[in-house]
Design a binder for these strands. Structure first.
Length: 114
DNA sequence: GCAATGACTGGAG
DNA sequence: CCTCCAGCCATTG
């Protein structure tokens, strides 16, 4: 398919998948990285999310957590509380920087999206 | 071009 | 689920 957008293609791919995360569900950086075919670049996913705040439409980065279901990136939002607020607004309970029943809310793009 | 950094992950204890 | 160790790779200085 005609893509050849630019070097920021990696970021766009991350944003594209992140926006497909259903409301009230969460996923991990590794899941997105794996879906992109670069599971080894899970760190880059996090880096891409760093630019999510500058992208439009806004990317639900609050639905992206680490493998433990922890809100590792909460500090990168406008304010740390925002991540919990957004998750709570979607019915996701957060306790001590960790999503409650994270395992049950876990959403894998390559499995449920397709 | 090398060194340091990071919103990470998997395995082992 | 928690902690420690080592690997991975794009971005930045």
């Amino acid at each position: 398919m005609p893509v050849k957008t630019d070097k920021d293609n990696f970021f766009q791919k991350v944003f594209s998948v992140a926006r497909k995360i259903p409301r009230g569900r969460v996923t991990t950086y590794g899941a997105i990285a794996e879906y992109l075919g670069a599971k080894s670049s899970s760190r880059m996913v996090g880096w891409a999310m760093n630019a999510s705040g500058t992208q439009f439409p806004p990317v639900p980065a609050h639905r992206v957590l680490n493998r433990n279901g922890q809100l590792t990136g909460k500090h990168h939002f406008a304010y740390p509380e925002q991540m919990e607020e957004l998750l709570a607004a979607e019915g996701v309970e957060v306790f001590n920087n960790t999503v409650k029943d994270f395992k049950a809310l876990y959403w894998e793009p390559n499995t449920e999206l397709l």
